[in-house]
């Protein structure tokens, strides 16, 4: 999933000099975001990694105006979050998917849940029906229309939440650890659905994750630490820079970590291994040579 086509040149999201500060109970000022400059183009798949408390979620919440900058600016599709009149359109274009699927499902059936946002737009009912059916189809949920969301699996719940965003004709998915509470099957389901939306529908994806294996599938990785961006580049480059990751108490993928240990033991492995299949291939090639 490395090739991401149709990426436009002008930025879809433009963040300049973004600061966000708040006061703690003790009267101490916390600089949660400390000067962020970031541009994201339509169609990009960006993973944001960083330790707990580094500002990942705070940054994500600025993109759909759930939080507003203390200084600096955030512009989405040419609309500034400084103007309250832009909020509805910014939030329609950028839908948020949270960690816990149970916290974001509101209706008694899957169909109604997906229709919730559309009804708030006061769209005519045939249009709502059509959009809901389309979103269900795209997310592979057809047949579950009448199911109560709370009886679905975790992966299905997250896909319902994504379908709700898609039905709004959003152009961007903001995801805050969307698989943290899912089992491996649910995780695969959600990742496959999101990558498909990115690939086939050019939906911009910004995906906060603690799993290096998930970040490895993105087109670009942004690394955060203490409210700043300390790394920005393709996964192959970022996830093999283990010294940076380890300094932040983060990890590379298991393949990158194991390859690094083996290099210490004198194995002649190249420095860009991030997937297990690459490591097994490299080791087998090495075994044939020796």
């Amino acid at each position: 999933m490395d090739n991401h086509h149709k990426v436009e040149q002008s930025p879809f999201i433009k963040i300049e000099g973004l600061h966000y500060r708040y006061e703690t109970e003790g009267g101490e000022t916390i600089e949660a975001l400390d000067g962020i400059d970031l541009e994201i183009r339509q169609g990009e798949y960006v993973a944001i990694i960083g330790p707990n408390g580094s500002g990942k979620t705070t940054l994500l919440k600025h993109i759909n105006a759930l939080l507003l900058p203390s200084a600096g600016s955030v512009t989405v599709s040419g609309l500034s979050t400084a103007d309250e009149a832009n909020f509805p359109e910014i939030r329609r274009q950028c839908g948020m998917i949270f960690q816990n699927p149970d916290n974001q499902l509101v209706a008694t059936t899957v169909e109604e849940d997906i229709a919730f946002g559309l009804e708030n737009l006061a769209l005519p009912s045939p249009v709502i029906r059509e959009r809901v059916a389309e979103a269900l189809h795209i997310l592979g949920l057809t047949g579950l229309e009448q199911h109560p969301p709370h009886l679905l699996s975790g992966g299905e719940k997250q896909r319902v939440a994504i379908a709700g965003v898609l039905a709004m004709r959003s152009r961007c998915l903001l995801m805050d650890e969307p698989t943290a509470m899912l089992d491996p099957a649910g995780q695969q389901e959600v990742l496959a659905a999101v990558h498909k939306l990115n690939r086939e529908r050019n939906i911009t994806v910004i995906h906060v994750t603690h799993f290096p294996e998930e970040a490895a599938l993105a087109g670009r990785i942004v690394v955060m630490d203490r409210g700043t961006i300390v790394g920005d580049g393709p996964p192959r480059q970022l996830l093999s820079r283990l010294s940076l990751l380890h300094r932040l108490e983060l990890q590379g993928t298991m393949a990158a970590e194991l390859a690094a240990l083996l290099r210490q033991d004198g194995f002649a492995l190249n420095g860009e291994i991030i997937h297990m299949r690459e490591l097994s291939g490299a080791l087998c090639a090495l075994a044939q040579k020796t």
Binding site: G50, A180, E249
Partner: peptide, 13 residues
């Protein structure tokens, strides 16, 4: 029950 859900790699370790 799922004690590491949502923790960063340092927190998990």
């Amino acid at each position: 029950d799922e004690p590491t859900a949502g923790l960063d790699p340092g927190g998990r370790r």
